[in-house]
Amino acid sequence: MRHDLIIFDNDGVLVDSEPISNRLLAAYLTELGHPTSYEESIRDYMGSAMHRIHDLVLERTGRRLPEDFDDVFHARVFAAFERELKPVPGADDVLEKLAADGVPYCVASSGSHERIRVGHRTTGLDRWFAAERLFSSQDVGRGKPAPDLFLYAAERMGVAPERCAVVEDSPLGVQAAVAAGMHVYGFTAMTSAERLTGANQLISSMGELADLLV
């Protein structure tokens, strides 16, 4: 199927950051008195904007996270990225093929602009993404599962939502893309197919995606 715009989620789709960030998130929440396992972090927070983590903890415990939670967490994550972060296998090849074929693409991530840039710089993917191709939940009022971020990215890129395809690996992201009226490729590298209900097609590797898109 030919699309006029490919919108990539970032964490877990382009950069292999989810194992790192969820390990650190579980450890930090536990340190603050909110016992959380790695598996629970993946289940509850993968694909979330930071405000959703605050909201869920407050809802469940009646306690607010510290005011400097985001800054401390991001500092830990960025330090770990510098040591450990790798691109998702095949991501570079997909982007190279899209660029060569003249297919427009961008990123729409729950992560901050700084997180996106640090991840891309560390993995070398920054060569594919000028600033005008990067969109963050910081740019809109509501993060995923609301459709706002995907609709904003499509508008800024000048493409109608129904002509867009989204590559997502989180249930929240799939919900957001479906709500935006976009075609959804569910990436099952870290998330079971059962949790990506609503995706139009499931893929297990970036190589598989390259064959579908180009």
Rank of each mutant, 00 (worst) to 15 (best):
H3T: 15
H3F: 12
F8Y: 03
D9H: 12
G12C: 00
G12Y: 00
V15W: 02
L24G: 06
A26K: 05
A27P: 02
Y28E: 14
Y28T: 11
L29F: 00
T30M: 06
E39H: 13
E40N: 03
Y45W: 09
H51I: 14
H54S: 12
L58A: 15
R60E: 06
L65S: 00
L65D: 03
D70K: 11
D71V: 15
H74V: 06
A75S: 15
R76M: 07
A79W: 11
R83N: 08
L85F: 05
K86V: 12
G90P: 05
E96S: 15
V103I: 10
C106G: 13
C106P: 11
E114K: 10
R115C: 08
V118G: 10
T123P: 08
L125T: 11
R127Q: 07
W128C: 08
A131S: 05
G141R: 15
L149W: 02
A154D: 09
V178D: 09
G181W: 11
H183P: 10
V184C: 02
T188A: 01
E194Q: 14
E194L: 13
R195Q: 12
R195W: 05
L196Q: 05
T197Y: 11
G198L: 01
G198D: 00
G198H: 03
M206T: 10
M206W: 01
L213N: 14
